[in-house]
Design a protein around this nucleic acid. Structure first.
Lengths: 144, 144
DNA sequence: TATTGTTATACTCTATAACTATA
DNA sequence: TATAGTTATAGAGTATAACAATA
């Protein structure tokens, strides 16, 4: 286990990452607001667009309590973007799934997230590959 | 102006950045909670530890409405971590400043933010330099 | 008994609008 | 008149605890 680094270079990188995080969030909230969604609603809609998901599993992915998901899905459902479906295999379970309009909104939302796509255009392909591999190692992702 | 890239490599980097953002936030909230602070309270306390700041300017930095800052500072003040000081130059202004305990808490908080410091230890100095420069170019920061 | 989802409750953060005290 | 800070209000996210339906 390496000791925590406090050298100037590492601190500079940490600060840059903080800037990336701040800018990412800012743009994400903006994009969500452009569709009259909160950040949490946009995140859940994005999840469901990938795959209809039981309430409990949504809570797991959001790392929040299941009781919160009830409200978020309530609000998305009242706007016609999401619907609750029964799970034939387990009658306790409710699967949240996007409606057609919900899928369209999720698509537009994803397309409007320009962050890190526009700026990455400044980098060459070699540089983007380099960045990818550095991030992967930083995150401890398998370099498969 | 470059067109938005949608090639697989760029999308992969975008997703990795999303992962960085998620992990960063998770660790930040955890660190804050370990000191019985919310994320917003921790951020403000961190700001004030750098420099006592008028209410209005705190709102600017947080990119939120000034009315919200009142509540956040209220809660920090009621816990003895922050105090409001008058500004001799302008009697309308209140400058929020950390108490000694507030400074100590901010220090402990900062030290417990291991994210991107531990993982960066995995990288060599050359790699960290590379990562720094790539992030800088991505963020459009002057490579002074 | 354990699990899924919900309800009820309380707290924090958020924006908006109206207010006060200064400038 | 303009600005700094506050209050009041309402909506949303959050955790906790208790509950009904189902497993």
């Amino acid at each position: 286990m390496p000791t925590s680094r406090t050298d100037p270079l590492t601190l500079e990188v940490v600060e840059l990452i903080g800037t990336v995080v701040a800018r990412y969030h800012e743009e994400y909230e903006q994009a969500a607001a452009a569709h009259a969604l909160t950040g949490a609603q946009a995140r859940v809609l994005g999840l469901l667009a990938l795959e209809p998901t039981p309430m409990r599993k949504i809570a797991d992915k959001l790392k929040c309590e299941p009781s919160n998901v009830t409200g978020i899905i309530d609000r998305l459902e009242s706007r016609g973007l999401v619907e609750r479906r029964p799970d034939p295999a387990d009658r306790r379970v409710k699967v949240a799934a996007p409606t057609e309009e919900g899928r369209a909104t999720a698509r537009k939302l994803r397309d409007s997230l320009h962050f890190a796509r526009e700026p990455l255009g400044e980098l060459t392909e070699v540089e983007r590959t380099l960045l990818r591999d550095l991030l992967k190692r930083m995150l401890g992702v398998e370099t498969a």
